[in-house]
């Protein structure tokens, strides 16, 4: 069997802040195969964005970050500090789309320029006319009507959904093998969300692109991912094939998350009402299971020892829990 496209081992991101060390991503490991989609889900603040950015090598927007562990992309360690090598991957073989399509587009640049500069950055030989032609083609690919006119407009002239399509077009510019989509639809109207998500799914399939789909909303990931990983307080708590996971959640946190799934009629950012308490302060670490203070099933052992994904006992359906919920059956249907 060939090696996975993305192979992440023990990835840890620590921020040095005035309140002390904040471990935002803690010993995270996963594999992502070519053309597959991994959904990463968790409450806001659980470290999903930091994980996505660390994989991309962008954590250092904050100069106070320290990263350990390894990220192998197609067998190459892209945490390698060599700038040139990384630049050849970023944007070209790995691309990213962001949560807020307005703030992630430069307000003073034309839509078209956002795309052409990416094209020309990674292929110096491409002419201006050619880049322009390709950009319009890409706008068409992401189903933007009247792409030639949109090319000459500014970000603020487009609706939220259209902007996110532009974000996708930029990401697709160099036909990347991996797309990291960090909450790609959270800032959009509910009705637009589905269109954009479906478009992403279709494009992944058409182009054989692998995707890391990050969301706080299980409903976004359901039906659009091959594997699901649930994050809480910087750690992956449960990881399984989507088919298994949505049939049966083994970690108490995953189940609570599913219970809290916001429905289409509700605002996109619903709180986890079904679990009392709040996620732990990342600057204040305690021994044992991170979910223990909020867990209905917590025992003494949970407060002394930290469970790992293997603790659940089923290798194909990892759960970082000493007392996984194998007896309880969830019958919930999830989709958006």
């Amino acid at each position: 069997m060939s090696r996975p496209l993305l192979h992440v081992r023990d990835l840890t991101t620590t921020f040095t802040t005035s309140r002390g060390e904040v471990v935002s991503v803690d010993r995270v490991s996963f594999d992502l195969e070519r053309g597959q989609t991994l959904g990463i889900v968790g409450e806001s603040g659980s470290g999903k964005s930091v994980l996505g950015r660390t994989v991309m090598g962008l954590t250092s927007t904050a100069p106070n970050a320290t990263v350990t562990g390894s990220v192998l992309f197609d067998g190459v360690d892209i945490t390698n500090p060599d700038k040139k090598m990384r630049a050849a991957y970023l944007g070209a073989r790995i691309a990213m789309i962001f949560q807020d399509p307005l703030s992630s587009l430069n307000p003073v640049k034309l839509i078209g320029v956002h795309i052409t500069e990416t094209l020309r950055q990674h292929d110096k030989s491409i002419s201006r006319q050619e880049a322009r032609r390709r950009a319009i083609e890409l706008l068409d690919t992401v189903r933007i009507p009247d792409p030639a006119r949109r090319f000459g407009q500014y970000p603020h002239e487009l609706s939220g959904g259209m902007r996110q399509r532009v974000g996708i077009a930029i990401a697709l510019a160099c036909r990347p093998q991996l797309l990291i989509a960090d909450e790609p639809t959270t800032a959009l109207d509910v009705t637009v969300q589905k269109h954009v998500l479906d478009l992403l799914g279709t494009l992944c399939e058409e182009q054989g692109m692998a995707m890391l789909l990050v969301s706080h909303d299980l409903g976004v990931v359901a039906g659009r991912s091959d594997k699901v990983a649930v994050m809480y307080a910087g750690r992956i708590q449960e990881e399984a094939a989507s088919s298994d996971f949505f049939r049966h959640q083994r970690h108490p946190y995953s189940q609570a998350l599913l219970d809290a799934k916001p429905h289409l009629e509700n605002p996109a950012r619903a709180e986890l009402v079904s679990i009392p308490g709040r996620p732990p302060d990342p600057a204040h670490r305690f021994p044992g299971c991170r979910f223990a203070p909020r867990c209905r099933f917590a025992q003494d052992r949970c407060r002394e020892e930290e469970p790992s994904l293997e603790s659940g006992g089923i290798p194909s359906h990892g759960a970082a829990c000493f007392y996984p919920l194998d007896a309880v059956r969830s019958t919930k249907e999830v989709s958006i």
């Binding site: 950015r53 991309m56 962008l58 927007t61 630049a87 050849a88 991957y89 970023l90 944007g91 070209a92 691309a95 990213m96 962001f98 992630s104 587009l105 430069n106 500069e117 990416t118 950055q121 990674h122 974000g167 930029i170 510019a173």
Partner: peptide, 8 residues
């Protein structure tokens, strides 16, 4: 950040 993600 997104410009950096594009490899600029």
């Amino acid at each position: 950040l997104s410009a950096r993600a594009k490899g600029m």
